[in-house]
Each structure stands twice: as C-alpha cells, then as structure tokens.
Design a protein around this nucleic acid. Structure first.
Lengths: 192, 192
DNA sequence: AGCTTTGTTTAAGTCAACTTATACAAGATG
DNA sequence: CATCTTGTATAAGTTGACTTAAACAAAGCT
C-alpha cells in the first residue's frame, strides 16, 4: 500500500512549469550544469524528481529551457541596442528583474561549450558589436583584442557586483560602471 | 598475449609527476574539475589511465596537487605583498610564468566549493587585504561592498585578457590595468 | 459519478566515470 | 644476472546520476 500524500500543491501545468524553471534557474546559478543534480533541482522546486520528467524530457532539455527563458527576458529588456550609454542602464534593469538568470548566463553558461550556442544571440552583442564599436576608437593590434575581451567583462562583472552589493541606486550604478568602462577603453589606447 | 608497447617514454618518478601535473593543469583549466575526465587528463599527458593512479590516489587528490602547485608558484612570484602598484606587475609575471595554472585558479577553482579552501591562502589577498585598503578610501556602505568584489575581479580579468591577447608589453599592461583599477575605486566614491 | 490531470511513491534500468586488480614488457641498476 | 622501477594492456568492480516504469491518490471539471 502507498502512503497518501498530504498537502499536495496542485497547479495548472503552465504555472508549475514556470515554478520549476524558477527553481532550476536558482539551482543551476549556484553550481552550473554539470555539478547541479536533478535531485537538487527537484528539492529546490519542492516537487518530486519524477515530476520534472513530466515537464522536461531530460536534464539537458530542462537546462536549455532555463537558458532560453533567461535569454528571452534579457533581450526583452536590453534589446539589440548598440553599446552606448543607455545599454548599461538596460543591463542593470535586466539583472534586477532576473538576478539568478543573469548570473547563470554570465557566470556559467558562457563557459559551457555544449550550451554556448544558446548564449550566442548575445555574444553578438558582447563580441561583434563591441569589436565594431571599439575598432573605431582603438587601433588594430593586441590592445584592441585586449579591450574586446576586457570591456564586456568589466561591464558584466560591474553589474554582478552591483547585484551582490544589494542593488544600490541604479542610476549611480550606471554612471559608475560607465566610468570604469570608459577608463578601460582609454587604457587600451595607452596611458600617457 | 599482450602487445609489446613500442617507444615507451621512461622517466624518473618525480619528473613524470611534474609532467602529469602540467598536463592535468592544462586539462582542468579547460573545463574545470567536474567536467574533466581522467581519460582526458591521461590522454593530455600521453600516458595510461592506470599510471595516473600510480602517482595520485584519486581524482580529487590529483586536482588538489594541481591547485597546490599553482598556488605555490603564484605566491612565490607575488608574495604576500600589499595591494599596491607593484602587485599588478607581480600578477602579470606570475600569469606569464604559469598561464594555465593562473586561469585554472581564477576561472574555475574559485567557484568550486569543495576546493575553495585551497585558494583561501589568496582569498586573503583578494578579500581581506583589499577590504582593508579600500576601507581607507571608500566610506562604509554598499558601494564599499561593490568595490571590494569588483576591484579584484577587474584586476584579475585584466590580467587574463592580457594573457589571451598574447601578452603584449607587461609594463604597459601594468599601467593600463592600474588605470582601470583606480577608476573603479574612484567610481565607488561617486562620479561627479 | 466518471474521466482527465496533477501529483506521489517505489522500484528498477542504464550508463559513464572513477577505481582496483592482475599480468606482462622492458629499461635501469647493483 | 637478479631485482627494482616504470610502464602498458585488459578486465572487472563500484558508485552516483540520469532515466523510465508502474501503481496509486486526490483535485477539478463535465
């Protein structure tokens, strides 16, 4: 005989799916894809492991769904805007709206070869756009390469540090991160 | 009957150990602890899987040895110096001396809870020293927290980007990273 | 009331990666 | 030459995590 489950939280399918995605985002944001077990995800969501498989075909499928949603949210807030002043504000807004997703994308997903393709929609922003913008200001050579890698990192890490610091005044934050970014661009052109 | 191995590279035990550590550092630097298989490490070292176990008790043991050596090298070059101008030069020198170890420590090991303790000898540098230095310049509050996390990251990512850019002129690099670091500190105090 | 949907429990299957065991080949050394 | 050390090859044991299956309970809708 099977014990009868008390206090089961029933939910329409779509809503449950979202709730699982929320929990999975939190869980994966802590330790990334490989090191995070589905046990942990299920526990975080407060449901059974089996239920996960009623909503997603596999671990990879779930992870892709998590990343896709995080990407979609990010792009909805940031858009394909050029890499100008306002885009830092937009990034801060996006990070505040979905902190776990933001951290997941930029602390883990970017270094997971199997899923890099999902983030490529934004590596366009991060790499190609940046290079085009920077190439107009920095002469060809190793220091341009340096800046192309460094500037996005400085931006994103500034945002993440802002999240971790408790999200003080977003407008100030945008100005301050912009200051650092500009100094990085100036640095790539030589100190003097 | 067993095929006779041709062209076996014999080596004194200590030297083989170092060679394995080199290969393991490269392998782990690519994908971190969990996602890197001992198969891959053995292949990278050009030896058999079984031989790994003649030198190290387990995967965790091997990884610890790799991290310990990378830490030791880093500390030998950087020392427990204060966080002043010269320490950026020292970091660049250390990174150039052991690029794979450097990347392994600061892109992977810092986010692997099971092995964080190994890196703690330098989280002293990264966290405590930094906080003391910054607390003298930045008023208590969320922006101090922001800077305490952001400044070390800006420093280390600057170094890694420099590695990836082909290590152009170390002296220039030190000046340029210092410029960005100082601008981050200034930013934490407000833009104006 | 009866059917569908959502959920649980329990159990078992699969598979990759870590780990250990055994036997053999060949250089180094006294 | 005898022996120790370094190395390979092959096979099997172990474990943890992903995955599937089956049976049952209860909420919700028609």
């Amino acid at each position: 005989m099977v014990a009868s489950p008390q206090n089961v939280q029933r939910m329409p399918r779509a809503q449950r799916r979202e709730q699982i995605l929320d929990a999975a985002t939190r869980a994966f944001a802590r330790t990334g894809y490989v090191a995070t077990g589905l046990d942990g995800v299920a526990a975080e969501a407060g449901v059974t492991l089996v239920l996960l498989y009623r909503h997603f075909d596999s671990k990879a499928d779930l992870y892709r769904a998590v990343l896709d949603r995080a990407c979609a949210r990010l792009e909805a807030t940031v858009g394909s805007s050029d890499y100008d002043e306002s885009s830092i504000s937009a990034l801060l807004r996006a990070a505040a709206d979905d902190p776990d997703g933001f951290r997941l994308l930029f602390r883990h997903a970017v270094r997971e070869p199997d899923f890099r393709d999902v983030v490529n929609g934004m590596q366009a922003m991060s790499a190609e756009v940046t290079r085009r913008e920077l190439a107009a200001v920095i002469p060809e050579g190793p220091w341009l390469d340096w800046a192309v890698q460094y500037v996005p990192t400085v931006t994103l890490e500034g945002v993440i540090a802002w999240l971790d610091a408790g999200q003080p005044d977003p407008d100030q934050a945008a100005d301050r991160i912009a200051l650092v970014v500009h100094s990085a661009i100036r640095a790539a052109n030589g100190v003097d």
